[in-house]
């Protein structure tokens, strides 16, 4: 890392009354990358985002964005970030154009530039034709695209996406990801996103996994998946015994027979598969590959799948936050 990190968090703690939502986390995000913050609901993801975007002050620890302290220089931090919250924050009674120009005014974009920037932003998400339609007529996917592009109008250095695909149908979800992965290159922006869909985190350059307020693993998706072992190839052949011999002796692979199938454990299945098929030639009947997923990583680290969310725990935290707000 040549340049200083664009986001730096050290020893961050946030308590709501006697519930600790974040227990001393720290991480750095490299400029121009996509950083994924993963964990089940109630793990502390949104609390961390709220501290980073200056909506909450932490109990202790520090956080900075682009060199600005999130507590002491909140105005400067707010200027250099864009945020797409979990729940939509559009005004449904205004048009797409009005929502975006409202944002441009709030962030001090020069008056002469506003129309140009808003039009460009709408074209970028293919909503230019609908610019004068009220937002309440838009589908969930369109609203999300509009929010993401709105977050970019003031040209922030960091764009926060909190569960960006929550509540979207699979097709809109795929479209949104294609669009998001292009952002760092096209808009020179760093992406900080949270999700509890592990498969969606594959697009990240780096991932931190958070559970119960603590970071339990950090690395690239490939690095993290390595921690749960390599790929597995399942193979059916006309002659399993003979094939096993060949695999072990000629190719030096770690193979065995399980449930009338050959089971080969290897670092990278795609790399050794051509060689394997060429060697066994006509004996091969069927091949299956299983690659480890980030969900396997989470499972290994916590002993539970990410989706088995302790709904109870989430509600307890939300309730505590609400009670805390009422009192203060």
């Amino acid at each position: 890392m040549d340049r200083p990190p664009i986001i730096k968090v050290e020893n961050l703690v946030k308590k709501f009354g006697n519930i600790t939502a974040v227990r001393g986390i720290g991480f750095e995000v490299e400029e121009g990358s996509i950083f994924g913050f993963l964990g089940p609901n109630g793990a502390g993801k949104t609390t961390t985002i709220n501290v980073l975007c200056t909506l909450l002050s932490p109990t202790s620890g520090s956080a900075s964005i682009d060199g600005h302290d999130c507590m002491k220089q909140s105005a400067l931090v707010r200027k250099s970030i864009g945020i797409v919250f979990q729940d939509t924050t559009l005004d449904k009674d205004l048009t797409a154009f009005e929502n975006l120009s409202f944002h441009a005014y709030l962030y001090g974009v020069k008056k002469t530039e506003i129309k140009g920037r808003v039009d460009e932003a709408l074209k970028f998400v293919n909503l230019y034709e609908r610019k004068n339609d009220l937002v309440k007529k838009f589908s969930g996917g369109m609203k999300r695209r509009l929010e993401v592009t709105r977050g970019l109008i003031h040209r922030p250095r960091v764009l926060f996406l909190d569960e960006p695909t929550l509540g979207l149908d699979p097709q809109s979800r795929t479209n949104l990801w294609e669009f998001i992965t292009e952002l760092p290159r096209r808009h020179n922006v760093t992406i900080f996103m949270t999700t509890h869909y592990m498969e969606e985190a594959e697009v990240c350059n780096r991932i931190a996994i958070i559970d119960e307020g603590k970071i339990i693993a950090e690395g690239s998706p490939v690095e993290l998946k390595k921690t749960v072992g390599g790929d597995v190839i399942y193979l059916s052949t006309t002659d399993n015994e003979g094939s096993l011999e060949i695999l072990k002796r000629t190719l030096g692979l770690d193979a065995s027979i399980k449930d009338c199938e050959l089971y080969i454990s290897t670092e990278r299945a795609d790399a050794c598969l051509p060689e394997l098929i060429r060697t066994l030639a006509d004996r091969v009947l069927e091949v299956r590959i299983k690659k480890p997923t980030l969900n396997d990583v989470f499972l290994k680290l916590t002993g539970k799948a990410i989706r088995e969310e302790g709904a109870g725990a989430t509600d307890t935290i939300k309730e505590a936050v609400r009670a805390y707000r009422r009192r203060h």
Partner: peptide, 9 residues
């Protein structure tokens, strides 16, 4: 929508 206003500089 209030959040959109509150996170503005």
């Amino acid at each position: 929508f209030m959040k959109e206003i509150l996170v503005a500089p």
